[in-house]
Design a protein around this nucleic acid. Structure first.
Lengths: 418, 418
DNA sequence: ACAGCTTAGTTCATAGCCTTAATCGTGGCG
DNA sequence: CGCCACGATTAAGGCTATGAACTAAGCTGT
């Protein structure tokens, strides 16, 4: 129940947004097709499209002949109208990537983080430095960068300051958006990494075409990105989707969150390896880090390993069933490095177990798939944040004049660019 | 990412909707105040309000003097512009109620259902008969009834036909909306009863003022209505919120759904009484029906009862914590007859247990309250369905001419009106 | 009693938007 | 070269909200 007036200008903006979104999503289209699919009159389509061509936002993509008539002019969003920068602040490194408007990656910079709890100021410095680095690398004027999207772990309150709470980084109420905004005029968007990965999967991966989906991510931690009606579900304070710490086994295993019986304690990588160690009389799976240990476990064919993995699939299926019962999605996309490792081997069994635990009808309405994009998709998903804004606003005039990007607090380490 | 054009007429409709909603929600308001709070120009407010007064939709509610100026004219939605009928198809009776636009109940009819799986045709006949009965009783022209909202148990697919799937009624794909539409011209809205009760609580009960809330209902069955951004969350096929059959105790008690470890098997009335019986060496709690048995259990102070109830609160808290983690609401409203019975005695402990199971931050952002409205609120919530439509559309002209309501297939039983 | 002030609400000219209908542009066909 | 088919543009018209000027209604002080 929104209480905002509508003015005559909103109308034009809304219609520009409709056209721009169609053109961007459904590839090159003629004015005629645009008229059909948007129900706008051809005159308005011409008018609005003409304006956008004048701004350089839309361009002619080619002609298509018709039998005995004027050939149709195909239109597309001009890939070089502007550029998008997406950044992924991970636990071990910061990745910054530059995309054009077709979401083609043009440049990339990476900054290792070797401390467990990096200083926010240093992260900001890395990000601003990365912003300059990728534009230089791609030979792109920073003034044409439409926005910087940043993905971080933890919850991000959607206020103007983009306050970040991240236990894994040791951040408590860091106004990352405001800090970045102090260093550059380029519009900044900050969001949770699971949500940006989910966004990327929805647009370019296993979620394509779905309007209601849950992207379930299983790694060391366990989380989910919920998409309803095409947009990310945030809840009152943007922390919705905390799937990992829902209770699935009342009074069960202790979880690192301090609680008992969390899903994460059973299907998170740490939980799986820990359970294997217990089942294996204290001897852990081989492998240096968690990832190789889990790989080893998946390859080994001992009875103990089988039993532990079987149990894991059981818990995972029950957890996915809970998502299906509560959110009634049309698709569940399973991802995260551990989720993919499990899914690649056990997907049919996961489906089976889920079917047993979920209500019949919601289960029948949902399909369960695996993520299609690699972990780099977090940065791409972050870059979709400014893209969404561009589409929603029907394109905005680029800021005039030189764009300020302060990289004053020089990062202590040169980026590894490639 | 909607793909609908906007025309100049949509604008007027949208602004009418904004004004009407404000007037309806925030009581009598002057044109000036409306201008302030909607950001519409005074000229437009006057224009739009004038139109709505002309239609009889809005009326003058009084004057308020000001020191040295023209007195303000207060406006309100005319209560008698139209009427709303809400119906609750319960397991034992059908209740039909007539409301004016201030949601004041004016008439009521009740039809007992004595079979476990009532024939859809008979239910439709009862509903149509009730529609006539309440209008006659209140002396209201059926032509002024703006809509009939019907609440049923089970899931309701939101298509035009309002297909109902209800295991408890033994209905499988009953197009209740289409069947009712065949019997009357009055616009029909069908929705799930938990969702309509949730809607009523949100507007008039414990949910007032919240934009993100979960109404958790515990009775014989267990379910939840999720409200996000002021509207009911439905998911892909309208069956979202199936909280009762989420797994909370992996490989736990068998549930009537056939699965193991469902929340409902622990905190549903049947589950509680069953667990008590087991703990009490096979002797059930006294009392005829479930409701009085649970009441008896709550009053008894034996150690066994205490233990069972304590455990119940534990499971319930964990279940509520799951809702908080997944949906990040600003409020959780606990209801349903068993939920209220438990909540009245144990609310502080429920809060405590929930705090232990939920993540700290989402828990701190949510408050846990009890439902404030009685079970009659299901019908009132159903009546809000046409009200929502009226507000969303900014008022619609009433259908001209006589309104058809066929009550041909006479119900076999006279209604008990009062 | 009446001018002067204050606040509420209305009227009117204007700019902006989309739509329908007519017109222009471009290519194929006989 | 005339005709036709189809795409795109231009022109005329109907709606909408807005701002400025204007009217309405009540209070205050002389």
């Amino acid at each position: 129940m929104d209480v905002r007036r509508t003015t005559v200008r909103d109308m034009r903006r809304a219609n520009r947004a409709v056209l721009l979104t169609r053109i961007w999503l459904d590839g090159p289209l003629s004015r005629h097709e645009l008229g059909q699919s948007t129900a706008l009159s051809l005159a308005s389509v011409s008018n609005l499209v003409g304006e956008m061509i004048g701004e350089g936002l839309v361009e002619v993509a080619g002609l298509v002949e018709s039998d005995g008539g004027r050939p149709r002019v195909l239109l597309r969003v001009a890939p070089g109208y502007g550029y998008l920068v997406g950044a992924d602040v991970g636990e071990t490194r910061i990745q910054v990537e530059l995309f054009d408007l077709t979401m083609t990656a043009l440049a990339k910079a990476e900054y290792p983080l070797d401390v467990a709890a990096p200083d926010p100021g240093q992260v900001v410095a890395h990000l601003l430095h990365g912003l300059i680095a990728v534009t230089e690398q791609a030979g792109v004027d920073p003034g044409t960068v439409l926005g910087l999207g940043v993905a971080v772990s933890g919850t991000v309150e959607r206020a103007a300051d983009a306050v970040v709470h991240a236990q894994t980084l040791g951040w408590e109420g860091v106004p990352l958006g405001a800090m970045l905004g102090a260093g550059t005029d380029i519009p900044v968007h900050v969001d949770n990494g699971a949500k940006t990965l989910g966004q990327a999967e929805m647009w370019f991966g296993a979620g394509r075409g779905a309007r209601h989906a849950v992207v379930a991510l299983v790694g060391s931690g366990v989380g989910a990105a919920v998409i309803t009606d095409g947009v990310s579900y945030r809840g009152a304070h943007s922390s919705a989707g905390e799937w990992g710490h829902t209770t699935i086994a009342y009074a069960g295993r202790r979880c690192r969150c301090g609680n008992h019986g969390c899903l994460e304690a059973y299907v998170g990588a740490e939980g799986i390896l820990d359970r294997y160690r217990q089942a294996n009389r204290g001897r852990p799976a081989a492998g240096g880090d968690e990832e190789s240990a889990l790989g080893e476990l998946l390859r080994s064919e001992t009875k103990t390993a089988e039993a532990v993995l079987d149990e894991t699939v059981g818990y995972l299926g029950a957890g996915v069933a809970n998502l299906i019962n509560l959110f009634n999605p049309e698709r569940v996309v399973l991802g995260g490095w551990a989720g993919l490792a499990l899914g690649e081997r056990f997907l049919p069994r996961i489906r089976e177990v889920t079917a047993r635990h979920a209500l019949r009808q919601p289960y029948a309405q949902a399909s369960i798939e695996l993520c299609q994009l690699g972990p780099d998709a977090v940065a791409m998903g972050a870059a979709t944040l400014p893209m969404v804004r561009l589409l929603r606003d029907g394109g905005v005039p680029r800021s005039a004049g030189a764009v300020r990007v302060d990289a004053l607090p020089r990062p202590g380490r040169r980026p590894r660019t490639r």
